[in-house]
Amino acid sequence: MIKVVVAGALGRMGQESCKAVLKAEGMELVGAVDTREIGSPLGIHLGIADLDVTISDNLEKTFQELKPDVVIDFTRPGVVQGNIELALTYGVRPVVGTTGMSSTEIQHFQEIAAGKQTGALIVPNFAIGALLMIKFAAEAAKYFPHVEIIELHHDQKMDAPSGTAIKTAEAITAVRGNMAQGMPSELEKIEGSRGGNYEGMRIHSVRLPGFVAHQEVILGGIGQTLTIRHDSISRESFMPGLLLAVRKVMSLQHLVYGLENLLFE
């Protein structure tokens, strides 16, 4: 039985994660950590009357008392870094869905995890369809190297561009390298209207109510375009990948960045 704690348990992704773990075979939800509703029964917030888990605001104490195998983190940038460090210190395997970390920070945690021989996963997107989108986009970029990425998320998302967009851009860059696109002399009448520039390709971030998580990769060629799009229309779409990550991390002794590195190995 895999003992799981969820950090950020009362957020939208946190609540969905708690429900998924409770339903999953071979897993036990032993703890929930958040900065809100401290001391209240988790079941009240999930609509589950007989759930014996109480909200705590102390992740270290939770690790000490409950000794979980895995912590699922859906907190926020600026908090997640300390949570990962704490988890690895206590030998708890972090499965992180919080985005916004730099490549330097990820490398730092890779070194710590390797030194402690403790499995860890940092996953920009748990949706299997999104991982396939990244894989297909990288393959298509071999033949259509002119690329722009448009990612669309709800208006409460704190970081831009999304971790998925960055992961997509990294995968495409590995295929085509840094490449200039468009008119060298183009003029932005409104600064930023062409989006962010990542190794020559443009990334555009949309933040509006009504969206969950969506992305399209537009590839252009002579006389044709190819669009690869993925839509998460509910947060349930992330749960099969999340549960897969919890199971996979148990057999790791290092940190893996991106679930596709385990899914398509």
Rank of each mutant, 00 (worst) to 15 (best):
M101K: 03
R176H: 07
N261R: 15
G31C: 08
L66R: 14
E236A: 13
D231N: 14
L29I: 09
N125I: 06
I122A: 04
E260F: 07
H230D: 11
A9V: 09
R207H: 15
Q117A: 06
E151H: 15
A213C: 03
P240E: 05
M201A: 05
V217D: 04
G192P: 02
L88E: 00
L86H: 04
M13P: 00
I44Q: 15
E105V: 09
K3W: 05
G182V: 06
N125H: 12
A127N: 11
K135Q: 13
R207I: 02
A140T: 06
I203R: 07
L121Q: 08
V246E: 01
P41H: 02
E60G: 12
V79N: 02
D50M: 01
V71N: 12
I72H: 13
L42C: 08
A165I: 00
F211Y: 15
V147D: 06
G26K: 11
A213R: 10
Q110A: 04
D159G: 01
S232T: 11
I128M: 12
A141G: 11
H204C: 08
L59F: 08
G200A: 08
T168N: 03
S185W: 02
H214W: 11
T173I: 02
G78K: 03
V53H: 03
D34W: 03
F211D: 03
E265L: 10
H154W: 02
A138I: 00
M13K: 00
E199A: 15
K67R: 15
